[in-house]
């Protein structure tokens, strides 16, 4: 069952990658990338169990955090054109 779930998750990544390739807007690609990040995190968790070494879940946690931070960084850039801009300083 773990193996089947892993394969299904890989297929999910492949489909989301297709969406990232098709676009058409940047936001579609961002959405797809965000989904890939989430699924990669799940894949990592399931894979740890498949390997019989579930103590590597720390890495999945790091993935989750980075995924969010990456998306928010990109979106902040989109809105303000600058990563560190304060509203006060403008």
């Amino acid at each position: 069952m773990l193996a089947a779930a892993t394969l299904a998750l890989l297929a999910t990544i492949a489909l989301a990658l297709l969406r990232a390739a098709l676009g058409p807007t940047v936001f579609d690609r961002l959405q797809a990338a965000n989904s890939i990040g989430t699924v990669a995190m799940l894949l990592l968790a399931v894979f740890g169990f498949l390997r019989g070494r579930p103590d590597f879940l720390d890495l999945a946690l790091v993935y989750g955090l980075l995924n969010v931070i990456g998306v928010i960084a990109i979106l902040k850039f989109f809105r303000q054109g600058d990563l560190g801009a304060d509203e006060e300083s403008r």
């Binding site: 990658l17 890939i36 894979f47 990456g70 990109i74």
Partner: peptide, 21 residues
């Protein structure tokens, strides 16, 4: 589109890290 390139290279990194695990 270079935004899309940045996003996709993030995806690539995630896949790479999963492979390393």
């Amino acid at each position: 589109n270079l935004f899309a390139v940045v996003v996709l290279s993030g995806v690539y990194s995630f896949l790479m890290a999963t492979l390393l695990v």
